[in-house]
């Protein structure tokens, strides 16, 4: 793991280790501690797809917490079929969990889920993770529509997304990796080179200035992409200046609300993660 990071093209000066290594440092039987099983991602090639880590697990725990399931169930009551879209799913652990546990999270199996990732291998991994998790939760899962390759929500029609989930590339880096065009990434049937793999991984964590360059673009698109009932869950680290981010969202207008609904790494320091929920009232 460390050797791989050591060869990444950007100087990340150890910053990304917090994001990548934590899950390994803390042996922890998640499924014993929580009732809902974590989706199996053992098929995922972590040399080119972001491996589930503390941030991913914080999203699972937050989305299945009593306060958030109550929020989701009140907001998307009976007679509705919410569309949940995860941007940047990586291994697919989060969206596969949401889909597999639709009954527990939304109180209903009438839930549509989908994902968009810039990395085609992540799309493939996500499809497989979602398929496996649905098989293992045959009586509780929603309907996974598919994963597609793209830049944030560019191909999604306006005002359709009811729940948007984003675990962004949030690590501050001297510069943002080149944002990929069609020709910059290997085709799905090609054998990616080591440089390809490094590039794809860098897209999963490197956030540029304040670690916010990509998240800022996503936040800018929220008024356009969210439905009238829409809400978004976005993960931030302390270096992203969460209070400034919240102020910016409140600036969209009086109807816009934002709250911290999950956090981890309580000790003071830059590793602290939080999840903000954004919604319109």
């Amino acid at each position: 793991m460390q050797a791989r990071l050591g060869l990444l093209p950007l100087d990340i000066s150890g910053v990304s280790l917090g994001r990548v290594k934590r899950a390994r440092e803390e042996p922890f039987d998640r499924d014993a501690a929580y009732m809902l099983p974590t989706p199996d991602t053992s098929h995922v090639a972590y040399e080119r797809v972001y491996e589930p880590a503390e941030d991913s697990f914080l999203l699972l725990d937050t989305l299945s917490s009593a306060t958030e399931t109550a929020f989701l169930q009140t907001r998307f009551g009976e007679g509705y079929a919410p569309l949940v879209v995860e941007v940047g799913p990586g291994s697919g652990v989060v969206i596969a969990f949401v889909n597999a546990q639709a009954q527990a999270l939304f109180g209903s199996r009438n839930v549509l889920t989908a994902a968009v990732d810039v990395n085609g291998y992540a799309c493939k991994a996500t499809g497989e993770t979602a398929r496996k998790a649905a098989l293992e939760n045959a009586t509780t899962h929603g309907s996974f529509l598919g994963a597609l390759q793209g830049d944030l929500v560019a191909p999604v029609r306006d005002r359709l997304v009811d729940v948007l989930i984003f675990n962004p590339p949030y690590v501050p880096t001297p510069e943002l990796p080149k944002q990929p065009r069609q020709a910059d990434l290997p085709a799905l049937d090609a054998k990616p080179s080591f440089d390809d793999d490094s590039y794809m991984l860098s897209l999963s964590y490197a956030g540029g200035r304040d670690g916010m360059e990509t998240t800022d673009r996503l936040i800018d698109s929220l008024p356009q992409v969210l439905s009238t009932k829409g809400c978004a869950y976005i993960l931030l680290c302390a270096q992203n200046k969460p209070e400034q981010v919240k102020q910016r969202i409140l600036g969209f207008g009086e109807a816009w609300k934002v709250a911290t609904v999950g956090s981890s790494g309580k000790q003071a320091g830059w590793e602290k993660l939080q999840i903000i929920r954004i919604w319109v009232e």
């Binding site: 597609l148 390759q149 793209g150 191909p155 910059d184 085709a187």
Partner: peptide
């Protein structure tokens, strides 16, 4: 019904988005 292979075409700009292994690629050329 799932679309596994083929293209998705925009009638406005004519761009064709490839679908491979069930995954549509919406990354744009420069």
């Amino acid at each position: 019904t799932q679309i596994m292979e083929g293209k998705l075409v925009c009638a406005n700009c004519g761009h064709e988005y490839a679908v491979r292994e069930g995954i549509a690629n919406f990354l744009l050329p420069s």
